[in-house]
Design a protein around this nucleic acid. Structure first.
Length: 567
RNA sequence: GCCCUUAUAGCUUAACGGAUAAAGCGGCGGUCUUCGGAACCGCAUAUGGGGGUUCAAUUCCUCCUGAGGGCACCA
């Protein structure tokens, strides 16, 4: 990466001046007139050197190794050192991009790391809502970004198929419905069956709160599911299957797949075993009939791993899950859990217990990526009150609106709808809450997925009309107009952006970069003719056009968004 | 009560301690015999409040206020 190279050369210059410095700040100034890169290192060293920053900057400039990638170095006001990249270098980068040679730098943890991302994790018997959709958009994008950065990625999904919410649902179906009514439900389409389960849950919930008799029965059903025996099991298995089939449909629509689906019910027994072993080691302790981890000595919360009925809690099962995740695919270097922040306490405690059980295996390898909620304008989503925005509804609604506005075939409308929805989540920082409102959140114009697709289609349209083939090696001798310069400047930082996105687990950096790039391209397109220019200029502009197209396509791929050729 | 996160324009959001705080939507005004107008250009409006650290603070520290989340048998 050119950035690293400049940083190294600044270090070299400093060394010649007799100083060793590890961290060299280097940024892209927002203002073009300050160059392609800028360093404030001289300002930072004023105290150490007891010298005027301008003098330090001048000295660094003097000692900076000569290099044909750098065209000009300038020292400005308080002590900034600004670097201009050579036109030839920028053009060469655009040429490689045009050939899809991106050379993404290896991941900051080092090359060839084995990283698992655990994401999606919907609960069965519940509808799949926009929060899950944000989760999937983030998880899928991170997988692709880290994969392109040279890691071996494993996609996993922990799906909750046990728990009180399911007992409540099944209690209602089993006790409050006739066999004939259930038979009618079975004949309905998959989605209707899921809606039915949601309603059954709401009714089960009411009964659970209302009378002791029902509550007792529901708890009993919960126990049967844990032990996987009793007359509820066939119904449980049947309805779990509905849910899994339903999830699978959604995964396909948003281009996600998994290497491994972990059903929570598989981890209860092993979870208990591990907890009991941890008790022997003194890591977990008995308290009020339960087996708990006392967090105070570590500055953590105290949490229950096995409840007083002897069932493993979510914590208890997590230990068994971790054991499996960290062995099934060989040693993992990192396991990233994409889960909302309400589980911070849960994760910090389970991670600590895992570390105490096996330091080598788990220490510093577990990471909770606490992405934030999608909040509704009317308040928080709740399946209990039915206040949810379903994922499928959202995509369908986007599709409907797009089809109404433009004449499109089914397939294209589907791709654009998915792009609009995913992009609207990914353009935001994962750590900030999104206040969801269809008209404000799912945009089809401006900073949106469809805008990027439109720009891509535009580049393809130009290429189709171009008679000249773009030749990769172009001389940089054509004089550049400001729009061309801006575009070149924008293009070359793509690899760097991908590196930063991988390092910070931030797909939004790529999203916003692509938007900036598309804007620069569209301005360039608006002001200058590509195909009607003289031969030399035309070739160069076609190169810019192709490089932009490849970067947009690749960038969208990294966001988990498909491109279209026409729209 | 204790702990964590958070506050940027009318709305929704950007910004690695750096130079004039960046966009979209909405508003107003323009480009329109087009290599695709889902586009392009221009104008107006913002760092919740008080202290502090720094050559430099939206960014770091502290207090206040508002918002969200968590703190043992749910997942």
């Amino acid at each position: 990466m050119i950035k690293n190279k400049i940083q190294k050369n600044i270090k070299k210059a400093l060394k010649e001046m007799g100083f060793v410095e590890d961290e060299i700040p280097l940024e892209h100034p927002s203002n073009q007139s300050f160059g392609d890169f800028s360093s404030s290192i001289a300002l930072k060293l004023t105290k150490k050197f007891h010298k005027n920053p301008l003098q330090i900057a001048e000295e660094i400039k003097k000692h900076f190794p000569k290099d044909d990638t750098i065209e000009k170095i300038e020292i400005i006001k308080p002590g900034f050192i600004n670097f201009w990249l050579a036109k030839k270098y920028l053009t060469d980068v655009a040429s490689s991009f045009a050939q899809e040679k991106f050379d993404f730098p290896p991941h900051h943890l080092g090359p060839n790391k084995k990283i698992m991302i655990e994401f999606a994790h919907p609960n069965t018997h519940k509808l799949f809502h926009i929060g899950h959709l944000r989760n999937i958009s983030i998880g899928e994008s991170l997988i692709r970004i880290l994969e392109e950065s040279g890691n071996k990625m494993i996609r996993s999904n922990y799906q909750g198929d046990v728990g009180l919410h399911i007992a409540k649902t099944l209690w209602y179906v089993k006790n409050k419905m006739s066999e004939a009514e259930l038979e009618d439900v079975r004949k309905k389409p998959l989605h209707d069956r899921m809606v039915f389960l949601g309603k059954a849950y709401a009714k089960g919930q009411v009964a659970y709160d209302a009378d002791e008799e029902s509550k007792k029965k529901i708890i009993e059903i919960n126990g049967m599911i844990y032990k996987k025996q009793g007359d509820i099991i066939p119904l449980w298995k049947e309805t779990v299957k509905w849910s899994f089939d339903y999830f699978e449909e959604i995964y396909k629509r948003v281009y996600t797949r998994f290497n491994r689906l972990y059903p929570e019910s598989e981890f209860a027994d092993r979870g208990v075993e591990i907890c009991l072993a941890a008790e022997k080691k003194g890591i977990l302790k008995r308290s009020k009939g339960a087996l708990v981890f006392e967090g105070k000595p570590y500055g953590l919360d105290t949490r229950v791993f096995i409840n007083s009925l002897g069932y493993p809690t979510y914590e208890g099962k997590e230990l068994a899950l971790a054991e499996k995740e960290f062995s099934e695919f060989g040693e993992l270097d990192k396991c990233i859990h994409v889960v909302t922040p309400e589980q911070k306490s849960f994760f910090s405690v389970t991670f600590k217990v895992e570390e105490l059980l096996n330091e080598n295996k788990f220490k510093n390898k577990q990471y909770h990526l606490a992405y934030e909620w999608v909040k509704l304008k009317q308040g928080k989503m709740s399946s209990r009150t039915g206040n949810v925005v379903e994922a499928e509804w959202l995509i369908d609604e986007a599709k409907k609106r797009i089809s109404k506005k433009f004449k499109l075939d089914e397939n294209t409308a589907e791709i654009i709808a998915a792009a609009a929805v995913k992009y609207s989540f990914l353009k935001n920082n994962v750590f900030s809450q999104i206040a969801f409102d269809f008209d404000e959140s799912i945009s089809l114009e401006g900073n949106s997925g469809p805008y990027l697709l439109y720009t891509f289609v535009r580049t393809q349209s130009v290429l189709k009309k171009a008679t000249t083939r773009v030749r990769p090696q172009q001389s940089g001798t054509v004089s550049l107009n400001p729009e061309e310069k801006e575009l070149l400047r924008m293009l070359h930082i793509f690899s760097e952006i991908v590196f930063e996105a991988a390092k910070n687990y931030s797909p939004n950096l790529i999203a916003n970069y692509l938007y900036d790039l598309a804007q620069k391209y569209n301005l360039f397109y608006q002001k200058h003719k590509i195909l009607e220019a003289d031969e030399k200029t035309k070739k160069f502009r076609l190169l810019l056009n192709t490089a932009t197209a490849k970067v947009i396509k690749k960038g969208l791929y990294l966001l988990g968004i498909k491109t279209v050729e026409k729209m």
